[in-house]
C-alpha cells in the first residue's frame, strides 16, 4: 500500500532541521553574499551593517549548538575521529543509511565554517578601506598601516571562507549526484523522506527567544567596547 500511494511517502517524512537552524543557515548565505557585494562596491558602512547582522546570527547559532534542538547541537554532530575515518572510507559507496543530522565529516565542516566566519568578522572590526576613511569600529585604535595589514588578512580569510564554502557545495553536489540524497531540500523544508531517520527533538521557543536576546546583546556589547 505504501508503495503505491504518494501520500504515504509524505506522511513518512521526518523532521530533520528546526526553523532556527534553517533561518541561521539561509540568512548566513544571504549575509555573506551581501558582505561580499558591499565590500566589492566599497560600501563599507553597509558592509559593516551586514557583518554585524552576520555576527548576531553566528553567535545565536553557537548558542543553539549548546541549547537548541537535537540536530543543532555540537554534542550530537561533533563525533569521534574514528567515526570520521569510517565515514571517509565509505565515500565510494552509493547506498548508505542517511544521517539523522550532520554526517561525521559534515559536523566538522559546520565547526570550521562558523570559526572562519567569526575570525573574518573579528578581523573586519579592525580593518579599514583603502581611502583611510571607512573601516571597522576598532580601526580607530590602530595606525593606518596596521589596519591595512589586518585588511590584507581579512581578504585572505575571505578566500579561505570561499574554499570552505566550495567544499560544502561540492559535498552537497556529491550527495545529490552520487548518493541521490537532496540535502538542500531538507535544509529548506526542514523535513526528509529518507528512511531510518531519528527524528529531530525540537527545543522550546523560549530558548530561541533567549538566544536571540543574548546574541543581540553580545553584538551590542562588542560594538560598544571602549577598548
Amino acid at each position: 500500500m505504501s508503495q503505491t500511494t504518494p501520500t504515504a511517502v509524505i506522511t513518512a517524512q521526518q523532521r530533520l532541521w528546526d526553523w532556527p537552524v534553517r533561518i541561521c543557515h539561509w540568512s548566513m548565505v544571504m549575509l555573506i553574499a551581501a558582505c561580499w557585494w558591499t565590500a566589492e562596491e566599497h560600501e563599507i558602512v553597509y558592509h559593516s551593517y551586514c557583518a554585524y547582522a552576520l555576527l548576531g546570527v553566528v553567535l545565536f547559532r553557537i548558542y543553539w549548538g549548546f541549547f537548541g534542538s537535537s540536530t543543532a547541537r555540537f554534542s550530537q554532530f561533533l563525533r569521534k575521529p574514528s567515526a570520521v575515518f569510517a565515514y571517509l572510507k565509505s565515500l565510494g559507496q552509493r547506498e548508505v543509511k542517511p544521517a539523522s543530522g550532520h554526517n561525521p565529516l559534515g559536523g566538522y565542516s559546520v565547526l570550521a565554517l562558523l570559526f572562519v566566519v567569526l575570525l573574518q568578522i573579528g578581523l573586519g572590526l579592525f580593518a579599514i578601506d583603502v581611502d583611510g576613511f571607512d573601516g571597522g569600529p576598532f580601526a580607530d585604535y590602530l595606525s593606518f598601516k596596521t589596519s591595512r595589514m589586518i585588511t590584507g588578512w581579512h581578504e585572505i580569510i575571505f578566500n579561505v571562507l570561499l574554499a570552505f564554502i566550495a567544499l560544502h557545495i561540492a559535498a552537497i553536489v556529491y550527495y545529490l549526484l552520487w548518493r541521490r540524497q537532496n540535502l538542500t531540500a531538507a535544509m529548506l523544508r526542514g523535513k526528509t523522506s529518507a528512511p531510518g531517520i531519528t527524528p529531530m527533538q525540537p527545543a522550546s521557543i523560549t530558548r530561541a527567544i533567549a538566544g536571540i536576546a543574548l546574541a543581540g546583546l553580545s553584538v551590542w556589547l562588542i560594538l560598544s567596547l571602549p577598548f
Binding site: 579599514i128 583603502v130 583611510g132 573601516g135 580607530d140 593606518f144 598601516k145 591595512r148
Partner: peptide, 16 residues
C-alpha cells in the same frame, strides 16, 4: 598613498 591614507584616517578620527 599610504601616508595619505594615514592622514585621511587621522583627519577622520578628529572629525568624528
Amino acid at each position: 598613498f599610504e601616508d595619505m591614507g594615514g592622514a585621511m584616517k587621522a583627519i577622520n578620527g578628529q572629525l568624528k
